[in-house]
Design a protein around this nucleic acid. Structure first.
Lengths: 362, 362
DNA sequence: ACGGTCACCTAAACCGGTTTGCTAAACCGC
DNA sequence: GCGGTTTAGCAAACCGGTTTAGGTGACCGT
């Protein structure tokens, strides 16, 4: 009784309907080429056989996959719990869906990004946060798959989606300086596969370097120095933020304000502050970066640098699709988005009491 | 000068190396079948030509895609910003990576989940949160792609990953009852495409129904009633939680405790409490559900029902891969995970002052 | 009655790999 | 020096669609 349950192929439908494979294909893809009665008949037979064209065969024949890939140097399990990525991907998804494109995530497979790229069946790649030191950039390039770089200035002649990191960072620092703060701790994002390089700012293209330049530019304009030992880094997560600030505190840092390079880390810092018995913003000001949805829901609500996360995602697919369609390869200028400070509740004037504490430290 | 930049195919490599296509294929996949010198030569030629086997052609020939799909009835843009999904997907990614599987997201394409399923090139599907009312379940079934249901009791005879929703919910309610609370507001998750059905508990399989049963079971065991108008629903987001609690308040509800069915909504409720001038937990207790990472970072830290989000993801891929490999289709029992209450700082004894407020209401 | 159009449909090539016989040569023991 | 077994590699079928280049017959005007 039990059928062999092999799916019906286009040949089965053709035979059953007494037409050629081509006719069946036409019936679905370009029905205008067929008599409408024939189309109806073929469609009916197809439905009866529960025919569903094999998407893989279709991809091969058409040489396009209708899929775009999001590539990240970090493993997916960390990516998916990073709300910044969530918002960015959300933007990607919006635009991809509008364009009828499916979405695939490309991340190191057994540790190798190159292998993952080779196995990816995509028409275009959106590569997020690839530093100059990532050799896979060259690999992607050679693969001749259109791509766009996000948050990376590593390849100035390739299409890219960027934000004004330095400007945003400067605005954050300036805000704190205007509130009277002079002693900062900076919480940076560690490079993904930075490997052994102890210096998080070794790569001048890495986001931490860019934002740090912004902080320092504003500070030095006010005659203030942000020394290297006031900079701590960690993974861009809440836990990373908590740990980083604890580490700075343990190392003797007694800031009145914290400049965090991501909201997730800022939320972590918020917790460290509680654990240290510091009230925010009365005892310690904290400003984040990203302006995640959740920045509005913390207590106090987070002062942070806004960047258009979802919009960056949408723009990325626009660029990569653009490039996939007209392959003329004219080098496109990087697309820069503006950033701006959003002042909420986590920053305040520097308290005189804390000022003493600062002078206390040796 | 400029090459035609067509990628080298296996035929090109074969010709250049003076061997057959089969030999090239063997050189990469089953080198044992060839003389090792030949393998080396072929590999060298391939490298020289920058040959990279077309993954699509390979999929077609092998009839497997090495990809698993995560299917959701909601659009991807909402999924990606839902931290519960993030943690679940994180678990999926971990196990998928270990198995060498790529990950694809399947969500309604131009509004149609069925169309999205038909276009998906996956070896297995992990379907999250599909209610009994989703007709696409039948579609997936017919498609003969192995699948596993997550958070859905709609198909008792199919492999599924579930948690003890009722038990967890009962534990949450019991905890509050023991703290003396008697007046609750329940914040539920609205059904995705519930459509016009005003009643969020219309579908007894829907997560909101399951958890509500748990809350009510515990309450009625204590002789307490949770009336329908103490139940408000919204999307499972922070904003959904904020709005829902505001709506309940506006409708005259004056609870001493809030039972939220997701941590995201609980965080939203936390904000509503602040906006209403209520301190948590002094004036209002709030307990969430999910035990997201962030539940540890709110102020106060969130009392919530723990469920193993990542583990559910990992188990899902294990089940679906299992089913894909040995296709014997023996119906497997649903896999249930336990839940348990995690008491943190957002719940406390009901305050006498608030008790008066309650008696105040008309 | 005949060449020309047009509408409709087909045969066959193609996409780029994998896999299944099968053959030819080398090796082997006796 | 002969049958039997390995070893190495090839040709061709195959996966399941799409697409191109015709072919067939009906209709049409003259």
């Amino acid at each position: 009784m039990e059928q062999a349950t092999r799916r019906a192929t286009i040949a089965d439908v053709a035979k059953a309907a007494g037409v050629s494979k081509a006719a069946v294909s036409f019936a679905f893809n370009t029905p205008d080429r067929l008599n409408s009665d024939t189309v109806a008949r073929i469609r009916k037979v197809a439905t009866g056989l529960d025919y569903r064209p094999d998407p893989v065969a279709r991809m091969l024949a058409q040489r396009r996959t209708q899929t775009i890939g999001i590539l990240t140097p970090q493993a997916l399990d960390v990516i998916f719990t990073n709300p910044y990525f969530g918002e960015f991907s959300s933007g990607v998804a919006t635009a991809a869906e509008a364009a009828g494109m499916a979405l695939q995530f490309i991340s190191p497979l057994h540790g190798s990004l190159a292998r993952a790229v080779d196995r990816a069946t995509v028409d275009g790649i959106i590569a997020v946060g690839l530093g100059r030191d990532h050799p896979e950039i060259a690999h992607i390039r050679r693969s001749s798959i259109p791509f766009v770089l996000v948050d990376s200035t590593a390849l100035p002649n390739e299409p890219a989606v960027l934000v004004d990191d330095e400007g945003g960072a400067a605005a954050a620092a300036t805000h704190l300086l205007e509130l009277g703060h002079r002693r900062f701790v900076v919480i940076g994002i560690e490079a993904p596969s930075a490997g052994l390089s102890a210096d998080p700012t070794a790569d001048p293209d890495w986001v931490t370097s860019r934002r740090l330049r912004g902080y320092r530019a504003a500070a030095s304009a006010a005659g203030i120095d942000i020394p290297d030992d006031a900079v701590v880094v960690g993974p861009a997560s809440m836990d990373g933020g908590t740990t980083a600030l604890h580490r700075a505190w343990a190392a003797g840092q007694r800031p009145t304000a914290v400049l965090a390079m991501s909201d997730a880390m800022a939320i972590g810092a918020l917790r460290t502050a509680r654990e240290l018995g510091l009230r925010v913003p009365e005892d310690l000001s904290i400003v984040g970066f990203d302006d995640l949805d959740i920045a509005n829901y913390t207590d106090p609500p987070l002062t942070t640098v806004h960047q258009p996360n979802r919009q960056k995602g949408e723009e990325s697919v626009r660029l990569v699709l653009d490039r996939a369609h007209r392959r003329d390869m004219e080098p496109e200028a990087p697309h820069y988005f503006a950033t701006h400070l959003v002042v909420r509740g986590s920053t305040a004037f520097v308290p005189p009491s804390r000022q003493e504490v600062i002078d206390d430290r040796t």
